[in-house]
């Protein structure tokens, strides 16, 4: 850009300052290229990182991987995180899988699977649900929301029902 202005090439009235001027000139170009490069770097770094897809690829949680089927015993249940709410995955028998919202419909406690009775139980007020999510006894007013369970190879996938 300096070439665009011919007047800066020389300073006829002060030839003794030519050295100083070129020194300043190199400082300015150093400062400018450094500053612009660094600032562009600071703009593009976030952009490049933004383009990099995050490990969790789903925005809205409609489906989650709840673990390996081989690691869940029949007649057992486990609490998994489904979005920001807990879900209960139950392996009733070798082949029968169930999943529910683990939020008790009474006062929002987290329910658990009771192996001794093969029922879902809420420890807060002794609410009991069956393996269809229906209320068996206790204060819960409504059944648990049921989710769909699918197996992808060994992986258990829970998804919201449409």
């Amino acid at each position: 850009m300096a070439e665009a202005d011919p007047h800066t090439h020389t300073c006829p009235d002060c030839p003794n300052r030519t050295g100083e001027t070129s020194e300043r000139r190199s400082f300015v170009s150093w400062l400018l290229s450094g500053g612009v490069a660094a600032s562009l770097g600071s703009f593009f770094f976030p952009v490049i990182r933004f383009l990099n897809p995050p490990h969790v690829t789903e925005a809205a949680v409609n489906e989650i991987a709840a673990g390996k089927a081989s690691q869940i015993k029949p007649n057992s249940g486990r609490i998994v995180k489904f979005g920001n709410k807990p879900a209960l995955l139950v392996r009733a028998t070798e082949t029968e899988w169930r999943a529910f919202s683990a939020v008790c419909t009474h006062l929002n406690c987290t329910v658990q699977y009771q192996e001794s009775s093969s029922q879902i139980w809420c420890a807060c007020h002794n609410g009991v649900y069956d393996l269809n999510g229906r209320v068996v006894s206790g204060p819960p007013p409504k059944p648990l929301e049921e989710y769909a369970v699918k197996l992808r190879g060994d992986e258990v996938v829970i998804s919201k029902r449409a």
């Binding site: 007047h7 300043r24 300015v28 500053g35 612009v36 660094a38 600071s42």
Partner: peptide, 25 residues
Amino acid sequence: ASVLFIAVSILALWFLIRRIETNGS
């Protein structure tokens, strides 16, 4: 950090303008 780089760039641009306009051009 980013603001610092921006400030340096602005300063450098200012110097550049000053330099190419030294003789009132």
